[in-house]
């Protein structure tokens, strides 16, 4: 563990009421790394992800992002979220805005760009995710895969230093998953730092620098994909991967 880790999560614990959902979770990432959180549903991986941009509040532990304590009560959370992009399982596109409107809202209202600049940036980002021909479509007029790509463009338009993906393909029909993964592959190639919660094991295997396996709110095992997938040290990891594989 070096001092210049880009993201360092240390002993993060979280309770919902009486129930503890995260138990001393720790992991770290360098700039440009891709870390994939895997685990059964209810294992706390989405909650962990949301603690990083404070959509969920961890009660204990420390999350250092670029040297700054994310969990500090003095932190300006809006400032933090400006720099950390997030992509949701359910897309959560603004239903009253077109694709361009969705992507331009942050640059316009949060970053303070002019109307024209914000629109230009939105168009560039939509082009980046392959939606140059759907600029003025409303979310309801787009397929799930297209909506999720708008969601990615919306996060990218803020020029984040870290991207969080919360099961970005789980709500998609199988034939639409590919187009979203393709965009994500592209981001990996560009060197984006990404923390990803997903069940797409082939994606995880192909791009992850490290896999973190969570079960019951605890880190069971973590390591590079070849190690975790080929020679898991923990029995639970092996069982989980077998179960997942049999569904593929």
């Amino acid at each position: 563990m070096s001092d210049d880790d880009f993201l360092r999560v240390t002993d993060v614990s979280k309770w919902y009421g009486e129930e503890q959902v995260l138990h001393d979770v720790s992991f770290e990432m360098d700039r440009g790394d891709v870390t994939v959180l895997i685990g059964p549903s209810g294992s706390g991986k989405s909650t962990m992800l949301r603690c990083v941009n404070r959509l969920a509040e961890a009660q204990e532990g420390s999350i250092l992002l670029d040297g700054e304590e994310v969990l500090s009560p003095d932190l300006d959370v809006d400032e933090l979220r400006r720099e950390v992009g997030m992509v949701f399982q359910g897309f959560n596109l603004f239903a009253h805005l077109t694709a361009v409107g969705n992507v331009a809202l942050g640059p316009r209202r949060v970053l303070g760009l002019s109307e024209t600049e914000a629109r230009e940036r939105a168009e560039d980002q939509l082009e980046r995710v392959g939606l140059a021909d759907q600029l003025d479509s409303y979310p309801a007029e787009l397929s799930g895969g297209q909506q999720q790509r708008v969601g990615i463009a919306r996060a990218l338009a803020m020029e984040p230093k870290l991207m969080l993906f919360d099961e970005p393909t789980s709500a998609l029909d199988p034939e639409l998953i590919g187009e979203v993964l393709e965009v994500m592959h592209g981001l990996v190639d560009e060197g984006m730092t990404m923390l990803v919660v997903t069940h797409e094991m082939s994606f995880a295997r192909a791009v992850a620098d490290e896999i973190v396996f969570l079960d019951d709110g605890r880190v069971v095992e973590r390591g590079p994909p070849e190690q975790l997938f080929e020679r898991p040290e923990e029995e639970r990891t092996g069982r989980f991967l077998e179960r997942i594989a049999s569904h593929d």
């Binding site: 809006d78 979220r81 959560n92 596109l93 809202l105 209202r109």
Partner: peptide, 23 residues
């Protein structure tokens, strides 16, 4: 209005009031 709309607004750095106003 769906809860996810507010979450998405907050996630791009809009304040609560800005999210209410714009979303």
């Amino acid at each position: 209005v769906e809860e996810g709309q507010i979450t998405a607004g907050r996630a791009i750095g809009l304040s609560k009031l800005e999210t209410i106003y714009h979303v």
